[in-house]
Amino acid sequence: MIEFTLNGQVVQTDDTPDTPLLWVVRDTFKLKGSKFGCGAALCGACTMHIEGAAVKTCVLPVSAVAGKSITTIEGIGTPDTMSAMQAAWAEQGVPQCGYCQSGQIMAATALLSNNPNPSDGDIEQAMSGNICRCGCYPRIMQAIKSVAVQSQKDAAEVASISKATEVFL
């Protein structure tokens, strides 16, 4: 039995230790949002967060995540409680077939949590491991930038409020 945390819940699996995490999450735990695209760490459709970092899980044996914390697209937000990134994706009409988009959103989310104000080059760099065969790249770029700008604004607002509060105090 291998134990790890999946979207905040402790889970156990009897899948053989060499089974890639992707298949354990999809087939054993029935979370189908993470996708299989290449099975060779080449496309990013299977991207999840492991301890907050974006990782391609189609080649990652489940044994490697024993005791670790995994977040999938389902853990990021739901149709009723979309994350800022998911909302930007939906609003800006990013997805076409949609198949790559869970992986794209996981990669983009990890990028902004490490680098809240990325340059275009940073975004291209961080997203270059995720293929979109439908060619949604211009919109993926726009959506990530809009979330970054918005969170910068929010941060600035929080900062100015706390500054104002300081002055007031």
């Binding site: 993470s34 939906a90 990013v94 949609g98 869970s102 959103i105």
Partner: peptide, 14 residues
Amino acid sequence: GRVDAVEKSTGTAM
């Protein structure tokens, strides 16, 4: 927008 945008942004499209 697209009628399938939310499903396809949340991993819930089948």
